[in-house]
């Protein structure tokens, strides 16, 4: 047994130190989760704060607002995931079909620029465009005669999901495409040439070479992303949200911010964090198992 380990000493050398670092910075701080089971107070610290068992979790599950917020979170994440996924792959394939190098590179560079624009700025642009008071969307719709009165987009709660997803899509599409382009670039060139020799058309090449070539990476990213369905962050929802759409815009991270950290109730916030981790892991494991069984892919 030891002989096997010894023979792999180089691999061990290349892995153990780095894993140690990762474990140090990611797993060691998890002792903080104990705060979820205490009535943590900053002044008393971990050692001095009284134990409270599962009371914070009970509070969480008893709160009606929690379920609403959870629904919003999962729906918006789900929509973004699908949009991003489909969009990024489609865009990568389309860009791959472009022969003119300059055009291809330029478009690709341009599409990821919004990724660097902060949400504060993007939200302003979105809100400005949708404004009933001189916003471009309303202007165009009225000029084309589709509507008589400007639409108050941001007042309609149920539209929030669509608006948010589209805004996020606009912002992140280009950046998400990068990795798929990299994968396509790495695909075996011979395959395409052989297909050409066989008289394959553009779409046939896409279907039989590009897409299968992308699948492993795409599946991997999909599985990993599923685990993050519950982690939406809150910046975009906060900036685009208001009193009229709050029932659709409030997500779990925003709820956590409002009801825990901003009022100094760390325990509640950590309880939510623990809950989120549990859900994430559950999701990732389930999707991984499904992918293994049905598609022969796996992340682990």
């Amino acid at each position: 047994m030891y002989r096997k380990w010894l023979s792999q000493y180089q691999l061990l050398l290349m892995s153990i130190p780095f894993m140690a670092l990762l474990i140090l910075f990611t797993y060691v701080p998890l002792w903080g989760w104990i705060m979820a089971f205490q009535d943590y107070s900053l002044s008393k610290g971990i050692a001095g704060s009284p134990f409270s068992g599962f009371s914070h979790f009970a509070d969480l599950f008893r709160d009606d607002r929690f379920y609403l917020v959870l629904r919003n979170t999962m729906v918006m994440s789900g929509l973004s995931l699908v949009a991003d996924f489909v969009g990024a792959i489609a865009l990568a394939l389309l860009l791959n079909e472009v022969r003119a190098r300059f055009f291809k590179r330029t478009v690709q560079t341009i599409t990821y620029i919004p990724h660097f624009v902060s949400w504060v700025v993007m939200a302003n642009i979105v809100l400005g465009s949708l404004s009933p008071d001189g916003g471009i969307v309303n202007d165009v719709l009225m000029k084309l005669g589709f509507i008589d009165e400007p639409i108050l987009f941001m007042s309609k709660g149920s539209w929030f999901w669509a608006i948010h997803t589209m805004a996020g899509f606009w912002k992140e599409l280009g950046w998400s495409t990068i990795i798929y382009l990299a994968v396509i670039a790495g695909l075996n060139h011979d395959l395409y040439e052989a297909a050409d020799v066989d008289g394959a058309g553009r779409f046939q090449k896409m279907w039989h070479i590009s897409i299968p070539g992308l699948m492993p990476t795409a599946m991997l990213l999909l599985i990993l992303a599923t685990g993050n369905l519950i982690n939406t962050g809150y910046e975009s929802q906060f900036l685009l949200g208001n009193g009229l759409n709050i029932d659709y815009s409030q997500v779990l991270d925003l709820y956590a911010l409002d009801y825990s950290f901003s009022i100094g109730d760390y325990s509640y916030g950590v309880a939510i964090s623990v809950f989120k981790s549990a859900i994430s892991i559950l999701l990732v494991v389930s999707v991984n198992m499904a992918a293994r069984r049905f598609g022969d892919f796996k992340a682990f």
């Binding site: 990762l22 474990i23 797993y27 990993l224 950590v270 994430s280």
Partner: peptide, 10 residues
Amino acid sequence: LIMSMYVNGG
């Protein structure tokens, strides 16, 4: 590795 992406101690 994978689990580390979904846990956060605060």
